[in-house]
Write a protein that binds this DNA or RNA. Structure first.
Lengths: 214, 214
DNA sequence: TAGATTGTTAATCGATTAACAATC
DNA sequence: TAGATTGTTAATCGATTAACAATC
């Protein structure tokens, strides 16, 4: 499996293929064509073939892709072929909702810790996992060799925690705090900013209203 | 204000500028340069100037941008210059967390309804707003002329609700259900897929491990 | 005026789409 | 073999970066 520094645009589509393959395999479908994948994803068949071809030749010409084989390849490419640990930092409403969601809906990822500073939530259980004091974070990260962390704490408190995470060996962060995090080059940050997502949608509502007037 | 069908890549950056301007104005800063905005956002100064120039000439050469004036322009461009209503459909853990977040943290957006089908949550209050039965959705959407809806319901139940929303006049949907929604061309859908965001991060952790071996 | 910073045009880069040869 | 579908090369499209003239 030649692992290169693949474009982010491709990487983001792989989990979508993975989810569809999971569903197909559950229904005992053995073979899928790029055309069918296209109708399920909304991406063009050409793009799907090109995405997969970036990592190797996984299909059979004239037939399509074997679902189990392709899923296996995708899991290896993404890096989900072994148990993967993550921690949730910040156990307010948003943090516990995410933690619960991942614990329940993500077959390939395991939450090994949830943390907070507030005595109001520390000790509470989320799907069987006990929320711990944030002082326990470095120990848990090191014990489980956690490489990916989810951040749902206020912007003002984010940077010191991020520094701590990086020092403990975390290399990827899913950041829900609406602030720019400073990290070394080898650490990847994905920002999910609910305000951006929601506000930017309003652009299209105004546009629609104006279109009505034309 | 010439409103065109601006590239989505630009539209998504506008709320970030808006947030920074809000903070600057709070601190009584009158003028900001593209260079300073660059260091705050991580985007290049050239890109920021080009983004803004797409909608008009809002700055002063040799000086920079007036914060209050630019914020005013941005609010008009995005379409946040009037009260903007939204509804949250699906009031499970994720839905109530989002609803609460928007109610508390979004100065320009007002949640006018939260809905669910489960008697366990209907009647509960979230930051003063009572969760209603989903049967009330069309009435609320029409009463408040809601154009933007937030969807946090299971994938299997999403499409019928989306059809209902579109019929009631909604033109933009923030979708957290991990499924492709079918909508008419004039309706915009933003998908936020926590699984994609999280799984795709694991690609970079494997990459890092391999780099260690080189 | 001189220094600073915008707004705009040109060059580059990267991603998507189209076309088709390879091959099951 | 004929039909189907992949994998790959070429063409197009769009977004970002660089350069600089305009102007406060």
């Amino acid at each position: 499996m030649p692992r290169r520094n693949a474009p982010f645009s491709i990487i983001r589509r792989l989990p979508i293929y993975l989810r569809i393959l999971d569903n197909l395999i559950k229904k005992d479908v053995d073979i899928i064509s790029s055309r069918t994948l296209s109708s399920r994803t909304g991406f063009t068949a050409e793009q799907i073939r090109k995405d997969l071809a970036y990592f190797g030749a996984f299909g059979t010409r004239g037939t399509g892709y074997n679902t189990v084989y392709l899923r296996d390849k995708l899991l290896k490419i993404i890096g989900l072929d072994k148990t993967n640990h993550t921690v949730v930092i910040g156990s307010g409403h948003l943090g516990t909702a995410f933690g619960r969601y991942i614990l329940m809906k993500n077959p390939y990822i395991r939450v090994v810790g949830m943390f907070d500073v507030s005595n109001e939530v520390i000790g509470k259980k989320v799907e069987g996992l006990t929320i711990e004091h944030i002082d326990r974070l470095p120990a848990v990260v090191e014990e489980y060799k956690v490489k990916v962390a989810i951040l749902t704490i206020p912007s003002a408190k984010a940077q010191p925690i991020v520094n701590q995470l990086v020092n403990s060996g975390v290399t990827a962060i899913l950041n829900f705090a609406p602030t720019k995090l400073n990290v070394p080059e080898h650490v990847h940050v994905h920002n999910i900013d609910l305000t951006i997502e929601l506000q930017s949608l309003f652009y299209y509502t105004v546009f629609e209203e104006e279109k009505d007037l034309i």
